[in-house]
Simulated assay, not measured.
Amino acid sequence: MQRLAVRDTTAAKMLDMPPTQFRRLVADGALPPPTRIAGLERWRVDQLQAILSGEAAKPNEDFEL
């Protein structure tokens, strides 16, 4: 079964970066904010994949991943 949403530590692993860097990029707006599910913060896997594939690129934004 494919995961639909993951914790920040798992999302950071998916992007091969430390969790602190992942959280900083989320705070800076370079990565999507979490979705709240029953009071838990989770990142949607499809949103992370869209960023990596360029489908969710923001060409006017000046972020480095």
Rank of each mutant, 00 (worst) to 15 (best):
E55A: 14
T35E: 15
A30V: 03
T35Q: 14
A27D: 10
A50P: 02
A50D: 12
R23N: 04
L48F: 08
D46G: 02
V26K: 01
A56Y: 06
K13L: 02
L48H: 04
G29K: 06
R42F: 12
A27K: 12
R36Q: 15
A30Y: 08
P19K: 03
R42P: 10
L52T: 06
R24N: 07
K13E: 05
F22Q: 01
P18S: 12
R24C: 02
D8C: 01
A11K: 09
F22D: 01
A50W: 06
L65M: 10
G54D: 06
V6I: 13
L4I: 14
Q47L: 14
A57L: 06
E41Y: 09
T10E: 14
L48V: 07
I37L: 15
A56Q: 04
A50C: 10
L31W: 11
V26Y: 05
L4H: 07
P33V: 13
M14L: 08
A38K: 08
D8M: 01
F63W: 12
A30F: 11
L65P: 00
I51K: 10
Q49W: 01
D62T: 04
D62L: 07
G39R: 12
Q49V: 08
L40E: 15
Q2R: 13
Q2D: 08
M14K: 02
E41L: 10
F22E: 01
M17V: 09
N60M: 10
M1L: 04
W43D: 05
M17Q: 05
R36L: 15
P19H: 01
V45A: 08
P18Q: 12
P19E: 02
W43F: 15
N60L: 13
E41N: 12
V45R: 07
A50R: 12
E64P: 00
E64I: 03
A27F: 11
Q2W: 01
L25G: 00
P32C: 09
E61H: 07
Q21E: 10
Q47P: 00
P19S: 04
K58I: 11
Q21W: 13
F22Y: 05
L65G: 02
Q49P: 00
T10M: 08
R42Q: 14
R3C: 09
W43H: 12
R44W: 07
D62E: 11
P34D: 04
R3N: 11
A27Y: 11
D28Q: 15
A12I: 07
G29R: 06
L65Q: 01
K58P: 00
D8V: 02
M1D: 01
T10D: 11
A11Y: 07
S53W: 05
M1Y: 02
I37T: 14
L52G: 08
E55G: 11
L25V: 00
Q47E: 15
D46Y: 05
E61Q: 11
K13R: 11
R23E: 04
P32N: 06
G29F: 08
M14V: 01
Q2I: 08
A5G: 03
V45Y: 03
A38R: 09
K13F: 00
Q21Y: 13
R44Y: 03
G54E: 05
L4C: 09
D8P: 00
V6K: 09
S53I: 00
K58Q: 13
L25K: 15
R42A: 14
M1C: 02
K13H: 01
R7F: 04
Q47D: 14
Q21K: 15
L52N: 03
M17R: 06
P59C: 05
A30C: 13
